[in-house]
């Protein structure tokens, strides 16, 4: 059993609690030991860096320094944490003076970041270390006949820390296929859902979401699958708002990829946080649960 330092991220305690629950269950079922990083703090996400880039790096670096002590790879299920922690890591790697300054600040709490931590996405670690063959071997309920629109989102592939093609990601497709489900191609697969702009620029983001939901539905998808907490929250919790604004009738469940894997592995709904989904997925998944 391979061990990892697990960094859940703040959304795992709230809007993406279903991601955290399912990530832990699936990891256990597939033989990954996740040891939660002791007393982690928020990675800072986009907002912190936008207000104060240097302070944001220092705040992210506390996590990197804590994680480095464990000697294990850090894995996170959250695409945004993945990007933010990696951004801080690379800034320090490329700019020794900046790293020295960060370490001077960290020293105030008796911490030091040497620069050895690997920051990985849980789903990438699943694919690289466990392998899709191993996952396939453990599938108990093949998701035969289930039509899925895979939605990778932006953060996982585009900021150059990703493991997949930035404009034609296929990793998620391969997981969906390994589980026995059918991948639905749709044109807006790589388009942004609007992310956190849903708060301050709701009009624009509802348009972006409408396009995604419309494309996925028109191409026959019965549900959307994503690894990203923000994409899932937007498309799930705001689907009603999209319907109101565009006079539409979408009722498309949006699952975390770890929830989908869990269903195929035969894990029970409560181990996957399926009751946290707003658009109820039970009807679509009934055959496989």
């Amino acid at each position: 059993m391979k061990s990892y330092t697990y960094y859940p991220g703040c959304s795992s305690e709230a809007t993406a609690v279903g991601l955290d629950i399912s990530a832990r269950s699936v990891a256990e079922a597939l033989g990954m030991e996740l040891k939660e990083l002791e007393d982690w703090n928020c990675c800072g996400s986009t907002p912190y860096g936008s207000l104060d880039e240097l302070e944001a790096i220092v705040v992210a670096a506390r996590n990197l320094a804590l994680a480095e002590k464990t000697g294990l790879d850090l894995v996170t299920p959250c695409s945004a944490c993945f990007v933010t922690l990696n951004k801080a890591r690379v800034h320090m790697m490329e700019k020794p003076q900046l790293k020295a300054k960060v370490n001077e600040a960290l020293a105030a709490a008796n911490l030091e970041y040497k620069g050895t931590v690997k920051v990985r996405l849980l789903i990438e670690a699943l694919m690289a270390d466990i392998t899709t063959q191993q996952i396939a071997a453990k599938v108990k309920n093949p998701l035969k006949g289930l039509k899925i629109a895979p939605y990778t989102g932006c953060q996982e592939v585009r900021p150059r820390f990703g493991f997949d093609h930035p404009e034609n990601p296929v990793a998620l497709d391969s997981i969906v296929e390994v589980l026995g489900a059918e991948v639905v191609p749709y044109p807006s697969k790589c388009k942004c859902c609007g992310g956190s702009a849903v708060i301050a620029e709701e009009g624009l983001t509802l348009e972006l979401m409408y396009r995604l939901l419309d494309d996925a539905t028109k191409n026959g998808a019965q549900c959307i699958v994503t690894p990203c907490p923000l994409c899932q929250m937007n498309l799930d919790a705001y689907q009603g708002k999209v319907n109101s604004k565009f006079n539409a009738k979408f009722n498309l469940p949006v699952l975390f990829v770890t929830q989908l894997i869990g269903v195929a592995l035969g894990l029970k709904g409560d181990k996957l946080g399926l009751n946290k989904n707003i658009i109820n997925p039970n009807k679509v998944l009934a055959k496989y649960l």
Binding site: E13, A14, T15, A16, V17, G18, D39, W40, N41, L54, E55, V58, V59, R62, K101, V102, E104, A105, L106, A107, A108, A109, L111, M233, A237, N275, K276
Partner: peptide, 23 residues
Amino acid sequence: GRMPLSARKIKGKNDLDKIIKKL
């Protein structure tokens, strides 16, 4: 159950303050 109303404070909050202050 996706919007807890109470916030949780990390144990190392003082450390985080010190780090930010030092910077």
